[in-house]
Design a protein around this nucleic acid. Structure first.
Lengths: 226, 226
DNA sequence: CCTTCTGTGTTAGTAATACTATCATTTGTA
DNA sequence: TACAAATGATAGTATTACTAACACAGAAGG
């Protein structure tokens, strides 16, 4: 089963819409593989051009910089996550179960949804963990933000915060907790894999399992008034 | 009142110890100012050399790369934070008050300790917020970690986790919560300043105030068994 | 059928970056 | 006074991030 997912992303992210052409899609899907393999610092348009049997100027006709390309990929990912959350939560009524499913989805605990689309989800998830903060931790963050380039992340965060509010209507930090859960899902998995002394995961593997349990405790304790 | 703080940092971080010479100290303190001003991406050894009226090769005799220099600065910061925590907690007996003081220190809520040393603490704090994850979110993280270059962060995290354990001896995630608090202190302040829709701070300023209150709720709710 | 337009390939080039090599000079120390 | 260590000065390399100019191929339209 192949499903094509397309999301409307901010036009400030690209010069030419990569979804519209074969070469555009090749740029994005191969960029995901390449950034996964060598990391964002080592990633260059030159290397990507070689990988897709094309040239640098062609890539520059789609994206003005590698930073914009990364931001484009991350926006696709945030849009995708929100879509998956909304799909899968639609069948559930119990708010607690809804929240637990959100935690499963953001930790990729049980990835039911691989191979359903153009991009390699496993690579994408690793990129999100290791590189996502590099898209906003830059001096130009305010200008980028003004051009709606973080809208999908904010939208996802809002969605999660609304589920939190159904569980605890008086909880004063729903959006901060939502963004903390998203960030913590990433950095605790990174720590568990690379800096395990910053976590309590004894097993040296089962990282997603560990992170899911930790986030579950964090969430449900925090929204319960002490 | 001037106090000189020196910490023993991993020798893998530098070629020549910058604490030992005037030019070494100038490199570090001016790097902090320059990274604060233009961000780590725009920061180059060439620009730093101009600022200290020296040349690139001189800086390269101290640090092999700008990434190592950033890691050196962050290590100094983590060592400093642990030192401040231990100093100020020594006079306190109540574990709850200890933990609250830790939260004040890591959010820099009431910076009693500016101007006490060589480096500009305010600039340093901004660097930690915006750039610290760039020191470990790299492909080479495992090799860097093997060379003890994150020891001060782990040590600080362990210290906080021990305080958490005195408050809640059965809490199963003391180290993960400690690392989460450190990370969240940074990204919630960044979000509050630049992406406020990811937080619930209504005031558009008082960022440290907001983050401290949020972290306090997060901490004391989480360690309380639900 | 010819034209036009759009997208891509090709080649070339620039300024800046991240380094390294060499050698002369200064400086503190024995 | 002699010596080694640190620094300065100069120069150079490979790579990166990006741009310019032009040729070509294919589709669309008259």
């Amino acid at each position: 089963m192949e499903v094509l997912l397309k999301f409307k992303l901010s036009e400030h992210l690209y010069l030419r819409d990569p979804e519209q052409t074969e070469i555009g899609k090749a740029i994005v899907s191969n960029a995901i593989v390449l950034i996964f393999e060598i990391g964002f610092e080592q990633f260059t348009f030159k290397k990507l051009a070689v990988k897709i049997n094309s040239t640098e100027p062609t890539i520059y006709r789609y994206f003005t910089s590698k930073h914009k390309l990364l931001t484009y990929i991350l926006n696709w990912y945030w849009s995708y996550l929100e879509y998956v959350c909304k799909m899968r939560l639609a069948e559930i009524n119990d708010p607690t179960k809804k929240m637990m499913l959100i935690l499963e989805i953001i930790t990729h605990h049980a990835d039911h949804h691989t191979h359903l689309h153009d991009y390699n989800l496993d690579h994408l998830h690793h990129i999100v963990i290791s590189e996502s903060s590099k898209s906003y931790l830059v001096k130009e963050v305010d200008e980028i933000n003004n051009e709606m380039m973080f809208a999908p992340l904010k939208s996802l965060c809002l969605f999660i915060s609304e589920v939190l509010l159904t569980l605890a209507p008086k909880f004063p930090y729903p959006k901060s907790l939502a963004s903390t859960l998203l960030e913590t899902a990433h950095d605790q998995q990174f720590f568990s894999e690379h800096l395990p002394k910053l976590t309590d995961n004894k097993s040296r593997n089962n990282h997603k399992d560990y992170v899911l349990k930790y986030l579950t405790r964090l969430t449900f304790s925090t929204i319960t008034d002490p």
